[in-house]
C-alpha cells in the first residue's frame, strides 16, 4: 500500500516524523563520496576540467585569441618600459677616442631603450671582436647606464710591412695602423716575414738588448727563421735560430766589457754560436792593416 500511495503522490503530505532513512540515491552518493579516488576526482578533477573547458571554448574564437595576445603584449610592453628598466645613455670606459668611436658605432640602439630589448651578450661579442679590444664587459648599471668596459690591447711593438706601420700586442695581434714611426717612438720596431708569430722571443731580445737600448732600431726577421738586431749606424747583430737570447747576451757582455758596439763594426755574426764573427767597418780595416796590405 505504501508504494501505491507513493505512486499516486499522496505521500507528499508531510508526516510529523521525518524518516531518517536515506533514499537509494543519497545512500549511493554517500558511498561514492567515501571512495577516495572518486572524491579526489570530484574535488580536484571536475573543477579543473570545468575551467579547462571554459577556457578552451573561449579560446576557440579567433577574436578572443587576438584580444588575449594583444592584452598580453600590452602588459609586457608596459612592464618592460617601466623607468627602472630603461637605459638612457652609454658609458664607455677604458678605451681611447678611436676605439670608443668604433664601439659606439656598434651600439645601434636609439636611447632611451628598454633593457629587455637589448641583447647584451651579442653586443659584448661584437665589441670583443674589434681588433683593438682584448676583452670587454657590457652591462647595465643602476641608473639606466649601459656600461661598456673595454680592455684595450696594449701595443708592445710596431710592425712594418709593405703597406705601412701597424701596432701589435704581445700576442702578435695587430691592433691599429699608424701613419708614422714617430707617432709611437717609444715602441720598438719589428720587420720581416713571420715576425709576429715570435713576439715573445722578440720581446725577450729587446729586453736583453737593454744596454744598447738607445741605439736599437729594430728587429728584423730573416727568412722567417732567425732574427737580426739592427742598431743605428747600420750595425747588425745577426742571431742564430736557436737560443737567440743567449747569443745576444754574449754580445752584450762583450759590449759591456769592451764597448764592442761603439767601435767601427758593421756586423756581429752570431749565426754560428761556436764561431762568433765580427765584420769591421772600412775605416777600421784601414787602421788595422796599412794601405795595400789587404789585397
Amino acid at each position: 500500500m505504501r508504494s501505491l500511495r507513493r505512486l499516486f503522490g499522496q505521500a507528499r503530505t508531510r508526516s510529523p516524523f521525518r524518516d531518517p532513512a536515506p533514499t537509494r540515491w543519497a545512500y549511493r552518493y554517500q558511498r561514492w563520496m567515501l571512495t577516495p579516488a572518486f572524491r579526489r576526482f570530484v574535488h580536484v578533477g571536475v573543477p579543473i576540467l570545468c575551467v579547462a573547458a571554459i577556457a578552451a571554448s573561449w579560446f576557440s574564437q579567433d577574436a578572443n585569441r587576438a584580444r588575449f595576445t594583444g592584452a598580453v603584449d600590452e602588459i609586457k610592453v608596459s612592464f618592460q618600459h617601466r623607468p627602472e628598466f630603461m637605459v638612457d645613455r652609454m658609458e664607455i670606459t677604458g678605451a681611447n677616442i678611436s676605439v670608443a668611436a668604433a664601439v659606439q658605432a656598434l651600439v645601434t640602439h636609439d636611447f632611451p631603450v628598454s633593457s629587455w630589448d637589448m641583447d647584451l651578450p651579442r653586443l659584448q661579442d661584437r665589441v670583443t671582436e674589434l681588433a683593438a679590444v682584448e676583452h670587454a664587459v657590457v652591462r647595465i648599471r643602476g641608473g639606466g647606464v649601459l656600461e661598456i668596459a673595454v680592455d684595450e690591447r696594449a701595443p708592445v711593438a710596431i710592425w712594418r710591412h709593405t703597406d705601412g706601420l701597424r701596432l701589435i700586442d704581445a700576442n702578435g695581434e695587430m691592433i691599429a695602423i699608424i701613419n708614422a714611426r714617430a707617432d709611437r717612438a717609444d715602441l720598438p720596431l719589428i720587420v720581416g716575414e713571420g715576425a709576429m708569430a715570435q713576439m715573445n722571443e722578440a720581446m725577450a731580445l729587446f729586453a736583453t738588448a737593454r744596454p744598447v737600448a738607445d741605439r736599437v732600431r729594430g728587429l728584423a726577421r730573416i727568412g722567417a727563421r732567425r732574427w737580426d738586431l739592427v742598431l743605428d749606424r747600420g750595425q747588425r747583430i745577426m742571431l742564430p735560430e736557436a737560443d737567440a737570447a743567449g747569443a745576444l747576451q754574449r754580445v752584450m757582455a762583450l759590449h759591456q766589457g769592451q764597448d764592442l758596439m761603439e767601435r767601427d763594426i758593421v756586423a756581429v755574426d752570431m749565426r754560428n754560436p761556436a764561431r762568433p764573427t765580427v765584420r769591421m767597418g772600412a775605416m777600421a780595416v784601414m787602421g788595422l792593416y796599412p794601405a795595400g796590405d789587404i789585397e
Partner: peptide
C-alpha cells in the same frame, strides 16, 4: 531502508 540508514550512519 533500515539497513541503509544504519550503514550510512556508521560510514
Amino acid at each position: 531502508l533500515a539497513i541503509r540508514t544504519v550503514v550510512q550512519a556508521a560510514q
